[in-house]
Amino acid sequence: MQGKLPDGITLIQADNYETWLVDVKVIDPNPIYQNETYRLKFTFSGQYPIEPPEVTFVRDATHPIPYHPHIYSNGIICLDLLDRQGWSPVHNVESVCVSLQSMLTSNTKKERPEGDDNFVRYNTQRPRDINFMFHDDTV
């Protein structure tokens, strides 16, 4: 799989079948994401690929959380693809990364989701237990 990853996607760590780290860069000249690299953390359950992996952005000194109306500032991503309903076992790490890359590329609003502060402060659930409302089909 590491043989031919698309541009802007780098596998950082895949030592086991539980957690992988992947770096994603937005290739197209979108001013919001210029010169930044984002780090994604994939957590796989025993049921993968029947069940979706848990995918979040992680932040450290060199990797910020990208601004996007569907990405909370704690790294949680609201994307139907990663939800049980939207997930399909034919997806893989690469296709998820490409989807997120294009989700960022097509974004024009440098903002956090509505209620981000509240959500980030009080959320104690894991992403897979959160029931997102997928209302926005434009991204």
Binding site: V58, I65, N74, G75, I76, V120, T124, Q125, R126
Partner: peptide
């Protein structure tokens, strides 16, 4: 005992 996620790092 619920899990907590990385909080707002800023």
């Amino acid at each position: 005992t619920l899990a907590t996620l990385p909080s707002e790092p800023s």
